[in-house]
Design a protein around this nucleic acid. Structure first.
Lengths: 334, 334
DNA sequence: CTGAAAGCGCTTACAG
DNA sequence: CTGAAAGCGCTTACAG
């Protein structure tokens, strides 16, 4: 079954193919009469302009690639949906590319991306070697890192101020009088983990403290559960646990309460990061630091589209300040 | 900055443009020597074939549209990730289209989809009027409904047997000796809600029972919370509650335990549907019916790709049987 | 195996 | 405002 093309419409409407093209090009000059004839014929034939063909000549595909490593951290589905909808409202669409945490596969993914002639790229929740980042920047296609940053600032990014967030948690825990403070790390290579830890331990040491215990969960539920067991293997137990994200904090909470029989916050205080949806669910009521997607997503899309329009502009790093929201996994304190 | 094209590569390699095209077309005939020259030149120039241009002539975009209404039900991010990865492994990619539960926006979405010349369509978690379904079928593009079915069978679908699932839950609850059984409905227009309820109430009435109480949550957390409050507004309370999906069951659990101070399963048994990730988390340990995405996703993709290859084949409905998995929101019973 | 050429379905100067 | 024509970057018969 042949697709109906602009030529079919032109013939039926008794006009040139150019006229058809023009009536479907916003801002092109067509007389009301011609437009009406075209529209009628198009309607009768069920014609729709072929975006693919159009993109070949306009050099604009209207497609933005979104690279994601995983979706099991509840924070990300939310971000993904918002990004997609925001893109849609601006006439773009998201082409999904799933990769893995380790950046071995990123090469392949990136190659495929470029083949699709995407207009831009949003990299979410995925590690990116600086080597790869450099190649991306060199490719000339506008890229924005969401919730990740790069030390050398070769790429634009939108994230929250993770150092500040880590500091806030440390100050809060200290104020609550905690003594044996532990850290459950995320993916050690990620900027998020590094910065949250940095802010956290800096405030601790400014107050003459260090991490009482320290383990790694790689932002993964199973590993976070295992790490929690190790962290609480021998007394004296930590009396506060800062988890590098909510997804792990929830896992830790489950282990603490249901396996180890500890009470939160009486025996241990638990703090997460992200303010993912389930953090607000009463069963968890997790104290955490927000990374407001309602502000971050539109900003990320704005910057990206700006770069697509004027690809000359230089990389920009935008950081949002998160807030500590106290719920019930920590004792009330000012 | 002009993109580097096959012609650039041809010039540098000293061969024809066709030769370049051939070395990037699997199965085309090129001598080893020519191929080597081309590959070298391509590498030097950072050339990648333009899939968009290719698709214009091959009539294959390699893009499959995925239509989703929302991602806050945790079952879906999981499905989406699996669908995407499965597609990727088969050389396709997913273009996301977010719509809304109500099918008003589906028209627009569908139009955009067709403009992108997607090779196929997967509709997940979204309502589709039979009118729209007919138009889809008429468009000639292969479509598969995931987790939804259509009465008139004009479209292929992969789902679980929701009638059977509803029956299983009813039999189980009856066996456990429950007397006042309530149903928390999802989206009334959806096939999932209709079938789960159908199987559920059928077994109930076969045993001389009816629904003790009945309310609607529209598969939405807030509404499910409100519905739960209504269901438990006055004694005697229901002693069992079947929720049309896990997302609402978890909401109900939160209200029951944390607002109403009821014990689950002592005061009320709660059963969900989906076996979404959080159903297995110890804080919920929800008894539920599985809809195995590990089996359903590959099958959905298989059928779709089959239809893309031989677009003549007629619509097919595949149903998977789910299992009731007993966890801790119901009393142990055989 | 290889190259010249037509064509996929559009947009966009260029004349009129 | 309108049409004929060139061209976006490929693939693919067609000859050789």
């Amino acid at each position: 079954m042949r697709r109906t093309t602009s030529l079919d419409v032109a013939r039926r409407a008794g006009v040139s193919q150019s006229a058809v093209s023009r009536t479907f090009t916003p801002g092109a000059s067509v007389s009301a009469e011609t437009r009406a004839k075209v529209l009628e014929a198009a309607d009768a034939l069920g014609y729709r302009p072929n975006k693919i063909a159009r993109s070949l000549i306009t050099q604009r595909s209207g497609i933005v690639g979104i690279v994601v490593a995983y979706l099991d951290n509840l924070y990300y589905p939310n971000v993904l949906e918002k990004l997609s909808r925001e893109l849609q409202e601006n006439g773009f669409h998201a082409l999904m590319f799933f990769t893995h945490q380790s950046s071995d596969k990123m090469d392949i993914v990136l190659g495929e991306l470029l083949e699709y002639q995407v207009d831009g790229l949003i990299i979410v929740s995925a590690g990116l070697s600086s080597d790869l980042a450099a190649r991306c920047a060199a490719s000339g296609i506008p890229i924005i890192l969401f919730n990740r940053t790069l030390d050398d600032e070769t790429l634009s990014s939108v994230s929250s101020d993770n150092v500040d967030g880590g500091e806030k948690v440390a100050r809060f825990l200290l104020r609550c009088g905690h003594e044996r403070i532990a850290y459950l790390a995320g993916w050690p290579g990620s900027s998020t983990d590094r910065d949250r830890r940095l802010g956290f331990t800096r405030v601790l040491s400014e107050n003459g403290r260090g991490l009482y215990r320290d383990d790694v969960g790689h932002y993964n539920r199973e590993e976070a559960c295992a790490a929690t067991r190790r962290l609480f293997a021998a007394p004296p137990f930590p009396d506060a646990l800062f988890c590098a994200n909510d997804h792990m904090a929830v896992a830790a909470l489950d282990v603490l309460r249901h396996e180890l029989g500890l009470s939160v916050p009486q025996d241990v205080a638990v703090v997460g990061y992200d303010d993912a949806p389930m953090a607000a669910w009463p069963s968890y009521a997790l104290t955490t630091v927000t990374q407001p997607p309602d502000a971050m997503v539109p900003e990320a899309v704005r910057i990206l589209l700006e770069n697509i329009d004027a690809s000359a502009s230089r990389p920009r790093q935008v950081k949002f300040i998160g807030e500590l929201v106290q719920r019930k996994t920590t004792r009330p304190c000012l």
